[in-house]
Amino acid sequence: MDAEAAKLIGAGLAAIGAGMAAIGVGTVFGQFLEGALRNPGAADGQQGRLFIGFAAAELLGLLAFVVAMILIFVA
């Protein structure tokens, strides 16, 4: 296989990581909403933790994007 083609296939495969991060972010917000609907009074105090979880899950998806960009433009 051509090295250039392998790079592009690798960059495409890296997009799987973005989808995985979508599952993670969806889980974070979904679980928060589930808990918030059970106890709406406690929900506002936990928004900071919600966004920490969101940031951690999102970072891994963004890393997948970085891998794709490195494969296309740098490697």
Binding site: A55, E58, L59, L62, L63, F65, V66, M69
Partner: peptide
């Protein structure tokens, strides 16, 4: 790294 990378990649993407 993670702090800077997150903002940069989110905006670029």
């Amino acid at each position: 790294f993670s702090l800077g990378l997150r903002l940069f990649v989110a905006m670029t993407a």
